[in-house]
Structures are given as structure tokens and as C-alpha cells.
Write a protein that binds this DNA or RNA. Structure first.
Length: 201
DNA sequence: CGTGGGGCAGACT
DNA sequence: TAGTCTGCCCCAC
């Protein structure tokens, strides 16, 4: 029974391009980079997928214009990656704590999945933390790209194609790579870029 | 440096 | 409701 919660949605400008956002009175409940920098589907297809996802989550999306104040909050929040405008109330306790811990990672830094799990109160749940991040409804706003593997490699980001995006996001934030192969004292130039290109083609 | 298991929350059946 | 499967992991061989 429970009537579907109605949410507003629209395309919004962000510091990294246009995205689809859905919001409640409390904040943004979903943000979709689909079709924008993940695998080039058309804007229409991206919107269909976005709406389908919202409905699956029991929401009733309704297109409308973005309140000016919210647009500003979204842009600021994405620029900082501080989760400030997110509404995570629909998530389970564990997932919410994982995302909240992720929001505390300063721009330019990274944490491992294990560290995030610990911060969420479940030190042994690193993999589960990865699962929670994989389902982050508001990427960029909650900076899940700042969470990497304990061995210093990037870890996943929305599918194989997304890893490249994750690397670029971290690079743009000037994140210092950590872990083996990224010892302090060495410029630690981001990464596994070389490894990625080797795997490709 | 590859491999195997352990471990954990959620989705699914 | 309970069992099963599956991952943006981790660490000890």
C-alpha cells in the first residue's frame, strides 16, 4: 500500500557537466551521471533509466524546475564533495553510515574501504562497505570516488568503464595516491593509469 | 605477484 | 521467514 513518495526531478548544471537530480524537501535523493560521462547513451535514454530507477525505489518522480537555492546547494556540494545537500534517509543504517563517513574525506584525500567500514562501526565489513558505495544514490555529492583499495589501487566505480572516471576525478582533486607504489617522498603520480591502458586493447 | 578463503550487508528467491 | 548468491574488499599464503 504505502503511497509512493513524490519527488521532483530535473537536469541540473554541475561543476562536471549536466546531471539528472531528484529531490525531496530535505535534499537530493538521487543524482545520475548516466549518459554524461559514463557510457555515452542519449539524454533521453539516460532520463528513462533514471526514472525507472526512482520508481523501482518506490518514488514517484515529477518533472519540475529546480529551486534556485537548491541548484546552488547542489553545485557547492558537488564542488566540495561534502554530501551537504544529500537526503540519505531512505537508506539502511549501515549504508547511511558508510556514506556519511565518506563525506568526511577531505577533497584531495582518499580512504580505503576498510577505513570507511571502521568509521561506520563495522571494522570487518570492508566488502559490504564497497557494496554500499556501489549503490551510492548520489555520486559526486557523496564522494565515493575518494574510497580506494587497501593496496593503493583504485577499486571499482560503476562498472569497468567507470574506473577511468574515478581516476580522473581523483586527479582533478589533486588526490595523493597512497599505498604500495605510492610511497611518501615519491610524487606518486596517480596511478594505475599505466596498468589500465595495459589491460585495455 | 597470483590465489584462496574469510567475512558482511543487501538483494533475491 | 529463512536460505542463497553476490559484490567498488582484505590479508595470509
Amino acid at each position: 500500500m504505502s503511497a509512493a513518495t513524490s519527488v521532483g526531478y530535473a537536469r541540473v548544471r554541475t561543476p562536471v557537466g549536466v546531471a539528472l537530480a531528484a529531490w525531496t524537501r530535505t535534499g537530493v535523493v538521487a543524482l545520475s551521471p548516466d549518459g554524461l560521462w559514463f557510457g555515452g547513451r542519449s539524454p533521453a535514454a539516460a532520463e528513462r533509466a533514471f526514472l525507472a530507477g526512482l520508481r523501482r525505489a518506490g518514488l514517484a518522480p515529477c518533472r519540475r524546475s529546480v529551486p534556485a537555492a537548491l541548484a546552488v546547494r547542489i553545485r557547492r556540494s558537488i564542488a566540495a564533495g561534502d554530501g551537504a545537500c544529500a537526503d540519505l534517509s531512505a537508506l539502511g543504517v549501515f549504508s547511511r553510515r558508510v556514506l556519511q563517513a565518506t563525506c568526511r574525506i577531505p577533497r584531495g584525500e582518499t580512504r580505503t574501504y576498510g577505513e570507511i567500514a571502521r568509521a561506520a562501526g563495522r571494522p570487518a565489513a570492508a566488502r559490504a562497505a564497497g557494496g554500499a558505495l556501489a549503490r551510492n544514490p548520489v555520486p559526486l555529492i557523496v564522494p565515493c570516488h575518494r574510497v580506494v583499495r587497501a593496496d593503493g589501487s583504485l577499486g571499482g566505480y560503476g562498472g569497468p568503464r567507470g574506473t577511468e572516471t574515478k581516476r580522473r576525478l581523483l586527479e582533478s582533486e589533486g588526490a595523493t595516491a597512497r599505498g604500495p607504489g605510492a610511497r611518501p617522498g615519491r610524487p606518486a603520480r596517480a596511478t594505475a593509469a599505466a596498468r589500465g591502458s595495459r589491460a585495455k586493447r
